[in-house]
Write a protein that binds this DNA or RNA. Structure first.
Lengths: 340, 340
DNA sequence: TTGAAAGCGCTAACAT
DNA sequence: ATGTTAGCGCTTTCAA
């Protein structure tokens, strides 16, 4: 049953030394063509598979990347994850996954668990708790122990490492400007993620857009509330005001709930009310009317992060580390929830 | 920078032997309390972390599970995945992830890549291509090489291993019966996954429900079409028939599209048309009206699969392997798309 | 061209 | 109570 063939066994059965087999299989010049041939044939016959763990121990590297994300059910992270996986596999790396569930403790626990030879580097999107409380020692610990980190989307500004982000400010600015351009006079902005860096940036982008167009930035049109039940209540109250003609939703929950609540309150979308949200899931297309969104090119973010990390891993240590922050452009997807 | 402390270093600096340090850190009875204390203190001071790779090589086990899923963007798989991750972490295992993208080649490639000591066992949901073409050698290869597999949801019936499935037949039977009970006379059934085992079972369940209630099983009300564009066309054509008063959607695409198309065609849901679909994503709640679904308890499936695998891994080889197939019960979630 | 031997970091049986 | 030694599977220098 357990058949695991080793170099040693091959060597014994062939009557040669272990090192000869090793060299032959790695196509070394030192070995004669015939022995190489013979050994290789025998190895395939025996279904020999080199044991990666042993190889890794030898090389002091695992060819594995630890990916730590807050929540795999969030389609944005799921998409980034696929991007990472794809790129990593292409470049010969495996992915070990940890899900922080937005918890600092879990994030820290998983990172410590993995940072012991299991992985060569981390790709991380910071847990909400770590970000709001600015807990970053565990990141610095990893970096100081020689394990590079690439952060994406939710980035800790005080950690010095490579980063991949989206132009949150600009895309919010652009989206809000679009609402103004199609004629909205009374735009509401909704956020349940003001604790996160990206949430703040998006809100700022919205405010700048209003200012830029000399529109009043009326705080009664703001719902900034991270308690989701409370958020839903406030939203229902706000939408009793039928003069609201535009909504900019900064996160998925806000986008979903404003779509649902507006329909329930009898708004015609997009005739009376135009709706744009930050969203990545397929569900934004599935809604009726479908939702216009700011798309973050999640798969590219993942591929980019994987490239950054692997580049750094494969760069000799002598080269001076210049950390980069790469900004991925977003795209406004015009669907049925906004007027043309 | 690269600080990686080893047992050897600790031993040297403390002037004791490597094995003393090893034993002390693993709290061996053999070592005196004071030396243990001294060594432990020093180890924490030096931030010693045992190298898992070395430990794994020694133990001939990696405490890692390879999870191969067709598509992480599918919320069902994402949920199962979280379940696996949660359970595995609790039981001290890591997860290495491979995404097959429904491709047989990729599935095979990833499995071969990992089955070399990197992982102790696999949890797999079979790629569509492997399932439709019944390609299963790569599974048997893994099993024969001593690596156990647990399959979930999409299961290869000819592979002998532990399995976790949902009672697809019964849940479809139950859902269709519910449609009949609330008064539907002219029910359509929609599937884009008739190539998959689960698709066939669900269709059978639907048919049995009709038969059981002596309803005509009219094939013109069937759309069984895996080409999605073609499916959408056929669906639009079908819904010109305003006498359709119930839809049973066997997969996510069918559920989504029937909701969207029915609204577009002017059906009042649920007054004129009752809709039930197999679905797991949060999006089914987000639709207006929200979608009644057959929920598959995805996280439990994941936890169950992880438990099965780890149980088998930790069972001594002497015990005779009795393979199990565990059936997880589904649940019908009544939402706004069906009459009460 | 081939083989012997050391070593990656750790554990554990076996001395002392 | 502590140390010596061998070995997990592989690579790689060095010797033959």
């Amino acid at each position: 049953m357990k058949s695991k063939v080793t170099l040693k066994q091959l060597a014994k059965e062939l009557g040669v030394s272990v090192s000869t087999v090793s060299k032959a299989l790695s196509n070394s010049e030192e070995i004669s063509t015939q022995t190489k041939l013979k050994i290789k044939e025998f190895a395939t016959l025996k279904k020999y598979k080199p044991n990666t763990i042993a190889k890794n121990l030898k090389n002091q590297s695992s060819k594995t990347i630890g990916v730590i994300i807050p929540n795999i059910l969030n389609p944005f992270f799921a998409k980034v994850f696929s991007g990472i996986e794809k790129r990593a596999l292409d470049r010969g790396y495996n992915i070990i996954t940890g899900i922080s569930n937005e918890s600092f403790e879990k994030e820290k626990q998983v990172m410590e668990l993995l940072n012991n030879g299991s992985i060569d580097g981390f790709i991380v999107s910071v847990a909400e708790e770590s970000q709001t409380q600015n807990k970053i020692e565990h990141f610095n610990d990893a970096i100081n122990s020689g394990t590079p980190i690439v952060m994406f989307d939710r980035v800790a500004k005080d950690v010095v490492c490579d980063k991949v982000v989206v132009d949150d400010f600009e895309s919010a600015f652009f989206a809000a400007t679009h609402l103004i351009n199609i004629g909205c006079k009374n735009i509401a902005v909704l956020s349940t993620i003001d604790g996160l860096s990206v949430g703040k940036l998006r809100l700022n982008g919205y405010e700048s857009a209003l200012e830029n167009k000399s529109m009043p930035n009326d705080v009664k049109n703001h719902i900034i509330e991270s308690d989701l039940d409370l958020f839903d209540e406030k939203l229902a109250a706000l939408l009793n005001d039928k003069s609201i003609d535009g909504i900019f939703a900064i996160d998925e929950h806000a986008a979903t709930m404003s779509h649902k609540t507006a329909l329930k309150k009898g708004f015609k979308i997009p005739d009376q009310l135009n709706l744009i949200g930050f969203a990545d899931g397929a569900w934004s297309r599935r809604l009726t009317p479908s939702l216009s969104t700011v798309s973050q090119h999640a798969p590219e973010i993942g591929e980019c992060a994987a490239n950054l990390l692997i580049d750094r891993l494969e760069k000799p240590f002598t080269e001076f580390p210049k950390y980069e922050t790469i900004v991925i452009k977003t795209e406004l997807r015009y669907r049925e929830s906004t007027k043309r």
